[in-house]
Structure formats: structure tokens, C-alpha cells
Write a protein that binds this DNA or RNA. Sequence first.
DNA 1: CAGTTTTCCGGCAACGTTAACGTAAACGTT
DNA 2: AACGTTTACGTTAACGTTGCCGGAAAACTG
Lengths: 345, 345
Amino acid sequence: MRRRYITIKDIAKALDISVATVSRALRDKYDVSFETRQKVLDMAAELNYKPNFNATGLVQRSTHNLGIIIPSITNYYFSTVITGIQRVAQENGFNIILYLTNDSPEAEVTIVKNLAGSSLDGLLACVSAHANNCSHFQEMIDDGLPVVFFDRVASEIQTSKVMQDDYNGAFAAVEHLISCGYKRIAHITGPKGLFLTENRMKGYYKALEKYGLSLNEDVIIHSGFSQQDGEADVRQLFGAGKDRPDAIFAVNDRKGIGAILALKKLSVQVGKEVGVVGFTNDPISQIISPTLSTVSEPAYEIGKIACELLLKHIRKTNFPAEQVTLSGELIPRESTSRSQNFIIS
Amino acid sequence: MRRRYITIKDIAKALDISVATVSRALRDKYDVSFETRQKVLDMAAELNYKPNFNATGLVQRSTHNLGIIIPSITNYYFSTVITGIQRVAQENGFNIILYLTNDSPEAEVTIVKNLAGSSLDGLLACVSAHANNCSHFQEMIDDGLPVVFFDRVASEIQTSKVMQDDYNGAFAAVEHLISCGYKRIAHITGPKGLFLTENRMKGYYKALEKYGLSLNEDVIIHSGFSQQDGEADVRQLFGAGKDRPDAIFAVNDRKGIGAILALKKLSVQVGKEVGVVGFTNDPISQIISPTLSTVSEPAYEIGKIACELLLKHIRKTNFPAEQVTLSGELIPRESTSRSQNFIIS
DNA sequence: CAGTTTTCCGGCAACGTTAACGTAAACGTT
DNA sequence: AACGTTTACGTTAACGTTGCCGGAAAACTG
């Protein structure tokens, strides 16, 4: 139980006017003269008045809180998206409340079901990797809570979504590998069923098709999104008795990093013997040796736009759902360069 | 303006009892019979009742929101601390609200001053790098808002604080460098005046002193905490006409990474010629080549304990301030190994 | 100058919940 | 049988704010 704060009643009493007038004056609305408004503002500043969001929220049926549901924040992409969201939210006087699912669908459902409806004005969501069902989000929307998806979107739900151009990004990545002369290109990707995974895979297929390379299901591995997953995938691809690929397209940089590390352990010369390209442009991709070729993702921009869209949904009921796709850029680095000579350390 | 939610009034009306009884039944308190409690619970489930936090917050003078003020979240340490905080908060039914200062003292002051007091039950804070004054935090505390500092603490403020053992960690790092035979050890550190910076510097001094190495102010550089700062510091240390150091103790891994990259650009063999040790045990320190020796920080644990302490302050007024120091561990890797041979890529 | 409009302000109810208090019925006690 | 106790509920007043309505005073109209 906190100390009592200054309220508009205190201001009203101090100036011997009514609370209604104070309220209007503070919100700069109709029906209040210049002088009284000035007096109220001065007194509010003097008493260090802070509005009580619980009270305003109660009467206006709104808090100024936006929820963010995200698998984790300990990687470059997610933390940058959140930074973008936070920036827009702060500029517009909204708080962001963070919920972490740890990529567990059960945790996600629990969190969403427990979202006390009234304590949130809107929701930004990135679905967990192994989600098989998104009806809990649909329920929120039916309840009248605006929801905007980013990155890992729930394709079956009709609402605004913001993502990078997974299809064309993947296409560019694989096209780049092909243009470097790699022929047998593996794809280590995320869980099946995820829209993001599907789209990057389609780009991969399309590039192979365009350049007349045969599609080989053996070199496509579905697993999680972590560095460890990347390492394990490569160990599998390069296991004994396998027909080894000469290039790897990883669904993201973390898996690409894992791939490079695993290849180095296998004494494979990355770039020269086996090309690797990732997706994200995580700063770490410039630090690893050899540096990792990748496709940049506008993470900050995605967060920013997602939040802006959510605010539009909040401010205007029945704001039509928009689907925004931001394009990235291919960034060739050493991991797809055959000319250089990298020594295994 | 959201759709109206089910309230306890609806439940009361449906069962033809009073709202007070419903309220008591839902909170499992005194003065309600087993049968009516059961009826209320069933009806609440049937109607999908969700409590309105604005209303409870208003009457109890509390929300279930904890604020986190932090310079940024796009690095391993901070995002991991937040993950720890989030976990504890979620388990205890608290939300966390994120505020980012971007290491700008002005932004920090603005954010703290605008924290609508009534919308927060407590505050976790990590002060910005160039803060010269922490009176805005003191004001919050005087206002009755519990505040707990973590990592970068404001030493002059009397409240609970959680941090790693900067002094002994730094001592261990420098002692390790000395034991590896490095003699002229530079220290690239954070801004002056920060408690964390001071403590790590004291550990550095102490190790030099213990092993009879002379202290040379020329090889101590104060700057920011980023990788770029680390690179710039090394360029300065290894500039023309300088008496070059043969080892670098970086205040954190990001600067250590920057140092390694800069040294590689200068064609200096890291480890063999110049040893580098960082602080944090960021995963990236195992990915860079050569891998970076470091002192681990229990980031998740720090977040967890900070949040637990804050909850204690919230639940019990005048809970005595505690100062928790967690010890890390020296992790020697290639960047301080003279035997190995690293080729510059 | 009477009548009409505008300006400015106060009173009151409401938002959903809880705490304090009141009370009727049932139960125990001697 | 008369009294206190306990149990289980209802009534009411807050919490801080805003929206609606009404009304007095001031300003404008012809």
C-alpha cells in the first residue's frame, strides 16, 4: 500500500474549484477559461501531480499498456524488434508489458488465457516455434483485443501482420550460393508448419528450380532455431556414409553460426569447401571467422511498424488489417567466398 | 474503448446475491459458505470472468506492475537479466514494464519523472553509463516506491542492490593474465564514476600490486561499453609511438571482442603476442576466434534475485535494504593462451 | 433593453472492486 | 429461556477520474 498521491481533488481544493473543472483544464478540453486553466496547470506542477492510470483506465475502459508475447529476448533479432516496439510505444505514452513463452506452446496458451483482458489495450505477438494451434489468439481478438503479429505470424488469423520478405530473402540467399558455384545445397530450417519456415523454404525451392538444380529432401532438415540445432543438423548432414552437401542455407544466423562451428570441428574449410549463408544479419555474423554471409532483416523497423499498426487498431475500431512485408538485403561475406583461405583454429 | 467485460456484478445478478459476497468468494476469504463459494466459482468460470486490474489497483493503491529501467536490451547480459526478472515476476503474478534509456542520462531522468507513480508497484533499475546524479531515483524512493538496483548501481542511494563481484572478478582476470606471463597489462574500462567501473578497476590495481607490477595510467582508458569503444581504445593503445601493452583487460566481453577484432586488424597475434580477457561470459566469447577468456557473470541469477528482493520490499514496508554480491568464475580460453597459433583471417 | 446565445463552471453518476460495518439467523451456554 | 457467539450474508462508501447535464453569468443580438 503506497503513500497517497496528489489527486485532482487536492488541486480542486487548493484552488477552491470543482474537480470537473480541474479535469477539463488538465486535459486541455472545452469549457474552461484561459486563466483557470493556467492556475490549474501551475498548481498541478507545484504539487507534482501525476494522473492515476487506474482511475482513468477504469472510466475509459483502457490502460495504456501493450502486451508483447515473444519466445525469448536473448537474441539479437528479438531484442531489436522489442527496442523498436518500445520506442514507438514510449513516444505515444504507452507502456509495454513483456511475456516470455520460451517457445513453449503450453506457456503461450497459459499466458494468453490469463491476460486479464482489461489490463491491456493491445497485443503484439510472435508465436512460439512449435505452436500447432492459435485459437487462443483468435479468442482475444473476438474479445475485442487488437492483436498484431510480427515475424512468426499465425497465417490463419485475420489481423495485421508484419514480417520480412522471407520468400525473396531466401531466394536471394540460395541464388547467391548457386552463383558462387555451389551445387548441392542443404537447407537447415525451423519447425514445419510455421509460416516463416514455409516461406523461406519456398524461396529455397524456387531458386533451385530456376537454376535447374535437383531437389533433394535428404538435405532439408527441420529442427529448432538455436545455434545448437544448427550444429546438430550439420553433424547429421555430414555423418558417416552420407552424400555430403557443398553448401548450407540456414534459416537464421544462429543456426548458420552453429553450422560454421560444426564444420570447423569437422575440419571442413568453410567457404572454400562448403558455403554457408544465414538470415538476419546478427552482429555476431561479422565477428565469427569466417564471417557469415546473410540476408539482413529490418528488425527494428519491424518492431516499429508492428507497434504503429497496433496503435492504429487501438485508436480506430475496425481498422482494416494490413499485411506488411519488409525486404532485406543479401550481404555476401567470407562464408561464401571460395577465394580466401581460412585456417581452422 | 473495449467491449465490456464480465464483472462481479454480473455474477452477483446471475446468482441473486450481493457483489460483496462474490468478491469474497472469488478471493477465497472469510465470511462465505462452501456452497456459495462453489456457485460463484462455477458461474465465474462459465461467464469467463476476468478481474479488472484497474479497479483492484484503484481501491488497493497498487497495480501488479514492476518497472525495469535499463540502458538497452540488445546484448546478452541485459537480456538475460531481464529474462530472470521476468520469470520471477510472472510466477508471482506481476507484469514487467520495460523502459529503455539508451544510456542517456536525460532520457533516464525523463522516464523516471514521468513514471506515473500509481501505475507501478516497484522499480528495478540499472543506471545509465554517464549518469552524474541519481536524485531522481531518490525522489521515487522518498515517494514510497520501492527501488532495487542491479549491475550498475547508484552507490549513494540507500536501498537494495544486486551485482556481481566486480572486484574479485577483475582481480582474478588480471591475476590470470599475470600468471600467463603478460607483464604490461592495459585496462580498457567504462566511464569514470560508475560503481561497477570503480570496482573492476580496484581489482585490477590490486592484482598489479600483489604481483609487484608497476601501475601505468597511460594504459588505462575510460570510454563506453560497446564493441566499437573497445576497438577505438585498442587503436589508441597501439597507436604510433606508443609503448604497447602485451595484454588487455576489458571491462566486459563486448569491449574484449572489439579489442580482439582491432588487434587482428593490426596483425597482432592474440594470445601469443597480446593476451585479452573480458568480463561477462557472453556466448559470443566462445564463437570469436580466438575464443575470449573471461569472467562469468550470473546474469539470470542477478535478475532473479533482484526481482525477489523487490517483491519483498513491496510486500513488507521497511524491509531492510540488502546488498547481494554474486561471484563469477574465471574462464580461461584461447585469447590468453600463448601455446596456440592463431592465424589472422 | 429584453431576449438569445455563448462561456464557464459545478453537481452527480458511473467505471469495477474492496473494506468496514451492520445484521439476521443459527448455534451454544448456563 | 435469556444471553452471548459465530456464521454468512448485504449495505454502503470509498478509490481517482471522466462525461453528461444543468445553470448562472457574461456576451452578443436586434
